[in-house]
Design a binder for these strands. Structure first.
Length: 128
DNA sequence: CACGTGACAACTC
DNA sequence: AGAGTTGCCACGT
């Protein structure tokens, strides 16, 4: 089915698929997405999200940098919108405009889902 | 805490 | 068919 096509799909498409699996009220980092997709660097994730249309179904807003902060984006207004969207989902920002990845950090997609898309083996998401 | 480095893919002309 | 341009990082020292 289309799911398997994902394996042959361009990297960006795979990234979108993973980001789409992030549940509301949860945030993931570029590096995390990159690690799940595999063979992809964190920057590639940023590039992919930057190429997303304004009406995409991909929750790009839930993807933030490793610092737990929102990327500055070119204009800067987009960052504000992203923050509002996250707050609307229940994500809390601290005084430093940072999100506690330990609380809201996404633990990764379901193994069954990942396996279905050929995202296995998935690198250990910091079992901590 | 700040700076510099390392590193890729997709789109358009 | 090829080349150039554009684009929301992470890590170590």
């Amino acid at each position: 089915m289309d799911d398997e096509s994902l394996v042959n799909a361009p990297v960006q498409k795979r990234i979108y698929a993973v980001v789409r699996q992030i549940p509301p009220g949860r945030v993931a980092t570029y590096g995390q997405i990159a690690a799940i997709v595999g063979g992809c660097t964190a920057r590639m994730v940023g590039y992919a999200l930057a190429a997303l249309p304004p009406e995409t179904d991909v929750p790009w807003q839930r993807v933030i940098n490793r610092q737990g902060k929102i990327s500055p984006r070119g204009a800067g207004d987009g960052s504000l919108r992203q923050r509002l969207l996250l707050e609307a989902e229940g994500i809390a920002f601290d005084q430093a405009h940072r999100v506690d990845l330990g609380r809201f950090g996404w633990q990764g997609p379901d193994w069954a889902w990942a396996a279905r898309h050929g995202f296995v083996p998935v690198p250990a998401p910091d079992n901590r």
